[in-house]
């Protein structure tokens, strides 16, 4: 079966830095893939290239077999590849409800949005349903800029999920959520994503979470793929332990997480 998403020799250089170096990945429809790697390993660069934020220096990106390399973020979004951001991207000066209303309203063709009122009982009911699904109902009328980081991330993801994407890339969805709440937050989130049958790629530093939720793990190191396979295999791989998990444990004990 054609992979839903494929990277062929994806490479990105920033001057002398090679942030992504000949990445080959094929993701099957409905897979839930965890992406791990120390800071600076190239995880965000990979997400940025797939979602059109960065143009690759070399290589190709295919969506269901179609070459989409070099298309801009908007076109890629329209194809059904959505994303959330490492630093949550929301509309800070308007409420959670209004954020979701905008996302709902624009799902469709721009010229037609002139005939769609932003606020109506129907659109508000739809927005409330989404807000409830992501468990952020209590923040409905809070300005997005004032939200706790973890909630802001959920809002970012909720907005990215509007418009029924086929693939969603989540860049550190639980960063900013306290360690003891992470598992619970991720469980809730993945339940929603699974219900929507979306293919998920999520960048995550917490190995416990990766082990629990990913069906497959890709480990990045220095712009390259170090290992790619079943979670227990990848997480017990000796080089992954040395270059990815070791530094993560070190980072955590240093209190940076």
């Amino acid at each position: 079966m054609t992979p839903v998403l494929e990277a062929r020799g994806l490479t990105k250089t920033f001057g002398a830095v090679t942030a992504a170096d000949d990445i080959h990945v094929a993701v099957a429809d409905g897979e839930i893939v965890g992406i791990i790697g120390a800071n600076g390993a190239g995880k965000t660069t990979f997400v940025n290239m797939v979602t059109g934020y960065l143009k690759p220096s070399a290589g190709q990106i295919l969506y269901r077999g179609t070459d989409i390399t070099g298309r801009d973020s908007r076109e890629i979004t329209k194809l059904g590849i959505h994303r959330s951001f490492q630093i949550a991207q929301v509309f800070p000066d308007i409420t959670v409800l209004d954020n979701v209303l905008v996302a709902l309203g624009v799902a469709g063709d721009l010229p037609r949005t002139i005939f769609k009122p932003l606020r109506s009982p129907k659109t508000e009911a739809a927005a409330d349903e989404i807000i409830a699904r992501y468990g952020i109902g209590e923040y409905r009328n809070v300005k997005a800029g004032l939200l706790p980081q973890g909630v802001r991330k959920l809002l970012d993801i909720a907005m990215a999920m509007v418009g029924d994407p086929k693939i969603i890339l989540l860049d550190e969805p639980t960063s900013g959520v306290s360690a003891d709440e992470k598992l619970e937050a991720m469980r809730g989130l993945l339940k929603v994503l699974k219900d929507d049958k979306v293919t998920v790629l999520f960048v995550e530093h917490d190995m416990e979470i990766v082990g629990e939720f990913a069906q497959r793990v890709i480990a990045f190191y220095d712009g390259r793929i170090l290992a790619d396979g079943k979670p227990d295999e990848v997480l017990s791989d000796s080089s992954v332990r040395e270059f990815v998990i070791g530094p993560e444990l070190h980072r955590r004990s240093a209190g940076k997480d």
């Binding site: 979602t51 801009d72 973020s73 908007r74 979004t77 329209k78 959505h82 994303r83 951001f85 991207q89 929301v90 509309f91 800070p92 000066d93 308007i94 209303l101 905008v102 996302a103 309203g105 624009v106 799902a107 721009l110 010229p111 949005t113 002139i114 005939f115 769609k116 009122p117 932003l118 606020r119 970012d156 907005m159 990215a160 509007v162 418009g163």
Partner: peptide
């Protein structure tokens, strides 16, 4: 117009153009 979704996209562009683009809307066209 300002009460329509298209009108309100203005506020969204003012606040976060990146998010607008990643909702699939061309801020430039708006």
């Amino acid at each position: 117009y300002l009460g329509s979704t298209m009108g309100f996209i203005g506020e969204a562009i003012r606040e976060n153009e990146l998010r607008v683009e990643y909702l699939g809307v061309s801020a430039r066209r708006a």
